[in-house]
Simulated scan of single mutants.
Amino acid sequence: MAEVWERQKGESRKAYEAFRIYRDMGAERSLSKVSKKLGKSTTLLSRWSARHNWVERCRQYDEYMEREYLLQQAEERKKMAERHAKQAMMFQNKILERMRSLDPRELSPNDLIRWFDIAVKVERLSRGESTEIQKVEHDGEVKQSHEIGITNKLLADEEARDLVKRLIRKRNAVKRDSDQS
C-alpha cells in the first residue's frame, strides 16, 4: 500500500507532479507558488488539492519526515558517543602508560592531591555519584587528611591505593617531624 504522500489511486501524473512540488516546499508551501512554478491556474490546483487531500497528506508527510529526522539525529548522537568513548579510552590508556612510569616520590604534595582528587571524581562519576564529596584546599601543604578506609572504598586501582597510602605515610612523617621540632 502506498504512503499517503505517494501517488494515490486515481491521481493523474500531472496532479501528482503538482502535489510533489507543493509537498516538498515544506513550511513555505502554497498553491500560488506551485501555480507560478508550473504555469497552471490556482483554480485547477485548488481542485486537485481538495480532490486528493493535499493538506492532510502534507501534514502526514511532515510528521513522517520529522520522525525520520529525530531517528537519524538519535543515531548520529549514538555514533558520536561511541566515537568519543573510544577516543577517551585511547587517551586514558596513554595517560595510564605515563602514570605507571611516574615515581610518586618525585611528585609534589600539590600534584598528589590533584591526582587523588581527579581519580576520586572520575570513579564517582562512573558510578553515578556526585563529585562534590569534600573540599580539598592546599597551598603546598596537606591540610586535610584522607582516611585509609575511605581511600580503599573510593579507589579500586591497586596502584592508586598504594600511592595514596605512601602519601599519607609521608604526610604523617612530616607532621611528626614538625610536631617534634
Rank of each mutant, 00 (worst) to 15 (best):
R29T: 13
R29S: 14
S30K: 00
L31Q: 10
K33I: 06
S35C: 01
K37F: 11
G39A: 04
K40A: 08
S41M: 01
L44M: 13
S46E: 11
R47M: 10
R47Q: 13
A50L: 12
A50N: 15
A50V: 00
A50S: 14
R51G: 03
N53T: 05
W54G: 04
E56V: 01
E56Q: 11
R57K: 02
R57C: 12
R59D: 11
Q60S: 10
Y61V: 02
D62N: 12
E66F: 00
E66S: 01
R67E: 12
R67Q: 15
L70G: 05
L71D: 09
L71G: 02
Q72T: 14
A74S: 15
A74K: 15
E76D: 11
E76F: 01
A81M: 12
E82Q: 12
R83P: 07
H84L: 12
H84R: 14
K86V: 03
Q87S: 04
Q87C: 03
A88D: 11
A88R: 14
M89W: 06
M90E: 15
M99D: 15
R100H: 14
S101E: 13
S101C: 07
D103R: 12
R105G: 07
E106V: 02
E106R: 06
L107Q: 12
S108Q: 05
N110M: 12
L112M: 15
W115Q: 11
F116E: 06
F116R: 08
D117I: 01
D117E: 10
D117G: 03
A119P: 02
K121V: 13
K121R: 15
V122A: 10
R124Q: 09
R124K: 08
R124C: 00
S126I: 01
G128K: 04
G128F: 07
G128V: 10
S130P: 05
S130M: 01
T131S: 05
T131P: 08
E132V: 00
E132T: 03
Q134N: 03
E137S: 13
E137G: 07
H138T: 15
E141S: 11
E141N: 06
E141Q: 09
E141P: 02
E141F: 12
V142K: 07
V142C: 09
K143S: 04
Q144Y: 08
Q144N: 08
S145V: 05
G149M: 05
G149Y: 04
I150V: 00
K153F: 04
L155G: 02
D157A: 07
E158W: 07
A160M: 13
